[in-house]
Design a protein around this nucleic acid. Structure first.
Lengths: 224, 224, 224, 224
DNA sequence: CATGAATGAGGATTCATTCAT
DNA sequence: GATGAATGAATCCTCATTCAT
């Protein structure tokens, strides 16, 4: 009833009609994928919501249709990623018979080997990119990722120890912690800091040699 | 709620700031100290220049007398820190005689043991906090810090190998990489993510057991 | 924190919404009721169309089937409310015989007494909430509400004056204006600013004493 | 040291040097004046910080140099306004001898008369414009403005009652409340809703007649 | 040299409105 | 008629950087 508002006037002037496609299928999931991709590439803080929207083929506003804040978007993206990665691992390990060392080798290969480019970007984001920005998410991820990882590995070591495969006085947990943390950081740096002199190393060599050293340490006689 | 303006509030806050002892001849150095302290505590991005100025007992503008940008301030702070830490390590190692394992133990203890709270904050900043923010500084630090570190350690391993202390087929570099990366990340998490369930572990146990496992791996018989 | 998306959260919220009894033949009316309720509670600007839709048990889009803009929705809601309130008042007054003072007392009681919580919310909206937001609606409401109100009251005063009940030199309109405006603002503050120290006063005392003071002023001898 | 950042590049491209005047004298006060002016004209919510900045001849950022949020800006502006208005009133009243009615007339004239255009805009802001937007400020203002006002007036009435000037059974507080609230709302509407048919009334008539009616009511014989 | 007032680009978030289904 | 996904203008606030004093 009132006179035309400023906004209406502008819109009229622009004259462009709004166009969009309706794609209700799995927008949230797609948004999470897009978010993880962009976050992983540029870091949490350096990513504008608009970039994620663009990557997903929508506009800013759409994100807020599904997620209430940038932080929630990150949290959900981490969750989704976590499920995808860890969903299979535990099962696979159960299916492997044979000595503990065999299962340990599988664990390492599955956990760090062959991770495609995108996967490592995600790791870099998780390890390096959110600690100071979203501390809560960071702590939560450590608890559910690395900590669970080395607990699982420590259990495998314990099995080997009970089976007489490894020496009795080994500190399974410390061993597991260091191997996992070490490979994690190395893996991340391989991609994320590529170009640094003296950093590159073939993935196979890194994983195999580290694993065998680890196993040898578990078996071998302690220092005299 | 009081009648103070924001400006007055700021002024009041400054009154309480911890001030560096004035060494009137080394302003830049003081600024770098203050910068490193605050950066380490809050991360690069989350630190305002004003906070650094406050911590150094000067005002924002003063920083720009000595450093042209926030990024340069970080770069110089990293450099200064690096010199202080690495300056002594190489010498000390040269003075230690005895088997390689002894020098390795010293190296680990010196590199990761007893690092005071502030020192770990710096590590956390360097490993976690700048990767996405200041990629160039990040790469530079990796090259001069961790990479140099594991090269040094690998050299110690090689010495031991030549002396017959370790087995001949050991991959010294991979071993050194994983040990250093692993302890690095563990050390950082101990402080930076304290409070995460299942994460805390006594420093002595972590360092000693990891070192002994490492040494045992270097000595022990390879897998059959 | 749970795994629900924002969208699911919204949906859940809707479940709990109070719904208007469906009178399938009067959607617009229902929407206006809902709109007035929510507007009155939170103010025009702070009410999202979605909240109104929720309160009415429909979705946002539906509102646009019946009203072209948020502003029109408000305008129509005011209209509907106005008709309901004023429709009866004039008739009732005509039925009261006796001295003018008696009719005045009725008018005040009817206009300000016993207004239930919802009613005062509406008044607050109209007096306080739309002046800067929807100036046209605001002016229109003043013209049809308060102005009509004090004209009616002034007419009652004139009747009393002609009947010799009040003194001849009284300014009926000013008197009516101040009484109505004063009671209006007091009534609104009673509810809308409850909790302010020294503000609360029993409604009966407010209305009765104000009315009697007013009548005494109309009767009494002017200042010497 | 790093390559030129995006931002620097842009700035260089723009090529415009930054220019500003240093005017530390009473910027906060000027900003509060500008804020009150614009707030009063357009309402709190409809005012962009940028408009205030423009009105004060500075840029957005400057406001945040002195005030932490838009709300704080409003709060301080109200405070400043309040001090200016109420600072003198109490004193002036003390200096007036004579009957209570004389002091009451002065009080009303001083409180509502001659308020220049700007002053009324402020009143409109305070009464109408912030209730739903900044409820805390609203309550605080009511407590320190109107409530104090009618308490003061009620005290004057009491003095007159004790002096035998007014009848003994008068409800001083209700009388004071209604007169003040009524004149307040009328004054606001006179300016803020100017143009409404039947609303305009000469200020002098409004104040004088209302005051005399009020005094007559205080004196006159209660209804039989 | 030091100060701190002023600048302004940048980005998260809100919500009325549109329109494909 | 309903729905609710999608849009995008609007605006608060932050903070690195500049520069008059």
């Amino acid at each position: 009833m009132a006179r035309t508002t400023e906004r209406e006037a502008k819109r009229a002037r622009r004259g462009r009609a709004l166009r969009w496609e309706r794609r209700p299928d799995d927008r949230p999931g797609e948004l999470l994928d897009a978010a993880m991709t962009v976050f992983a590439e540029k870091g949490y803080r350096n990513t504008r919501l608009e970039e994620i929207a663009e990557a997903a083929g929508v506009t800013k506003g759409t994100i807020y249709h599904y997620f209430s804040t940038k932080e929630e978007l990150l949290l959900r993206a981490i969750e989704q990623h976590h499920e995808r990665v860890f969903g299979r691992l535990a099962e696979e390990l159960r299916e492997v018979a044979g000595p503990a060392s065999e299962r340990i080798r599988l664990f390492i290969r599955r956990g760090f080997g062959g991770t495609e480019r995108a996967g490592r970007g995600v790791l870099a984001l998780l390890v390096l990119g959110i600690a100071h920005e979203v501390p809560d998410a960071y702590r939560q991820w450590i608890a559910s990722g690395p900590v669970e990882g080395w607990k699982l590995l420590a259990r495998l070591v314990d099995e080997g120890r009970r089976a007489g495969e490894f020496r009795a006085d080994v500190d399974a947990e410390v061993a597991a912690r260091v191997l996992i943390s070490g490979l994690l950081l190395q893996s991340i740096w391989q991609q994320h800091a590529s170009g640094v002199r003296g950093l590159a190393i073939p993935e196979k060599r890194l994983l195999d040699e580290a694993t065998e050293l680890f196993l040898a340490g578990l078996r071998g006689t302690p220092s005299g």
